[in-house]
Simulated scan of single mutants.
Amino acid sequence: MQLNTAFSSKSLRALAAGTGLLALLAVTACGPENSATAAQSDRPEVRQALETVVQAGFPGAQAVITTAAGEWIVNAGVGDTASGAPIPDNAHVRIGSNTKSFVATVVLQLVAEGKVELDAPVERYLPGLVRGNGNDGSRVTVRQLLQHTSGLPDYLASGDPSRPADPNSQQIKADPEAIRGRHYSPAEMIRIAMTMPPQFEPGTRSIYTNTNYILLGMLIDRVTGRPAAAEITTRIIEPLGLRDTYFPAPGDNGLRAPYPRGYQEIDGTRIDFTDFDPSWADAAGAMIATGSDLNRFFLALLDGKLLPAAQLEQMRQTVPFDRMPSAGYGLGLVVQTTSCGKQTVAHGGSIPGFDTRTGVTADGVAVTMTVNELPTNKERAEVVERAFDSVVCAS
């Protein structure tokens, strides 16, 4: 579900921003001015859930909850450790692997238009690209890319402690010294992936792999003649009026205002990692949005406003998800059940600086929760996941 990263470089401590953590709590109701929204904004369970994240040592957290009655925002902690300012309302944040849902939607629109076949081999659309060290694009289908059952190796070192990266691998390791200002092309990332053998036989397992979505972005480009970012803009962002959602252009290394600072812990020191070149994430996780826009996107998608019923149904059919044993992975969607029995559908994403959890419930409540520091181990990731579960259950 995420672009997970792990850093270790003692020389980076000189880059550290202020590390004081201020337990500032702010609650803001927005959207339609009515009693229902006002009452919801005062729900203590949401506030308490975000406070547990701050108490665990994260700088700040924000929940954006969208319902038929309106929308409200709850903040805990800070969006800037130097000034003590909270995460602003309508904050632009890096949404990481939520990008995959946008990419999958465009691919499925192309399927509906008869321009792509789900069970056709990748070789048909990207001839000669998936080849080498046992990788074979003629044996991997578009569906398998979408659902992470391709078996292809990941160009990106995941940082997952349960699957440590090979130190001799050419995988991109998200070390700030190496990637912060470097630009990667999709073709370069696929060349890196092809230096490694497949992880498993196509279609026999499901292992979350960012290479799959870099290839899907390239497929969109090849089929439409336009970059995936342009197709996402004209097919999704503009029709839905998502004014605060965008795919950063080459060289656009910052965030549009308003935004919180994004932090990363490296060797025990908190680094300000707000600005960097996100090209290494590309179609697997480079997009930027607000919580409100993410909620609107997932609500529209699941309400059938972006896809015909047949393709939406395909999108929701899941296989076991290796990174979340209690969840299933569809074609760019994650389906999971919370501790209170509510099922959510959306995705989620992690990238240096931000961890964003998303979900839409069966009764049409959309939740986006953002933490402005990427968890660096399983225990801290579980703190964020439990808080998101609590927010959904209280919404």
Rank of each mutant, 00 (worst) to 15 (best):
S138K: 11
L152Q: 08
R163D: 13
L152I: 08
Q147D: 15
G159W: 11
L118V: 12
R124Q: 15
E113W: 00
S162T: 13
E123R: 00
L126R: 04
A165T: 14
R124S: 15
H148R: 02
T149M: 13
T141P: 11
V93N: 03
V111H: 02
T105M: 11
R182N: 03
P161I: 09
V111D: 02
P164E: 12
N133W: 11
P121N: 02
L156E: 14
N135W: 12
R94E: 07
Q171C: 05
N168R: 14
R139L: 14
P121A: 00
K100S: 00
R139S: 13
L145A: 08
A165P: 01
D160I: 12
I179H: 04
R182W: 11
Y125V: 02
L129V: 15
G96N: 05
A165F: 00
V107T: 13
L156F: 13
A174R: 11
K173L: 05
S162A: 15
R143E: 13
T141D: 05
D136A: 09
A104D: 06
P127R: 04
V103H: 04
F102H: 14
S150F: 02
G159K: 08
L129G: 05
G137R: 02
R180D: 11
Q144R: 10
P121H: 00
S169I: 10
Y184L: 08
P167K: 01
K100C: 02
L108S: 06
E113M: 07
R182M: 07
V107C: 15
K173V: 14
P121V: 01
L126G: 10
D160A: 09
P153A: 07
I172T: 14
G134L: 10
D175S: 11
A187W: 01
P176V: 11
D175L: 12
L118H: 02
A165V: 13
R94A: 12
P153N: 01
T149F: 10
V122Q: 05
L146Y: 03
A165Y: 00
P127G: 05
I95Q: 04
V106C: 15
D119V: 06
P167F: 04
G159C: 09
R143D: 14
S169M: 10
R124E: 15
S101M: 06
L152G: 07
G181I: 01
T141K: 01
S97Y: 09
V116M: 10
D166C: 13
N135D: 06
E177H: 10
Y184W: 14
D119P: 03
P186A: 07
D175V: 10
V122E: 12
A120N: 05
A174V: 15
I95F: 01
D154T: 03
V103E: 06
V107N: 11
R139I: 07
K115Y: 04
Y184I: 03
E113S: 13
G128P: 12
V116I: 15
S185T: 15
N133M: 14
A165R: 01
L108K: 03
S138T: 15
E123W: 00
D136V: 13
A174M: 15
Q147I: 00
N133G: 03
A174I: 14
T99S: 13
G96W: 03
A120V: 03
L110K: 13
P167W: 00
L146I: 08
A174E: 14
S101D: 05
A112Y: 00
L146K: 06
A178Q: 12
P161K: 04
V130T: 02
L146W: 06
L152M: 10
V106M: 11
L118M: 14
L110W: 10
P176N: 12
G137V: 03
V103C: 02
A187I: 01
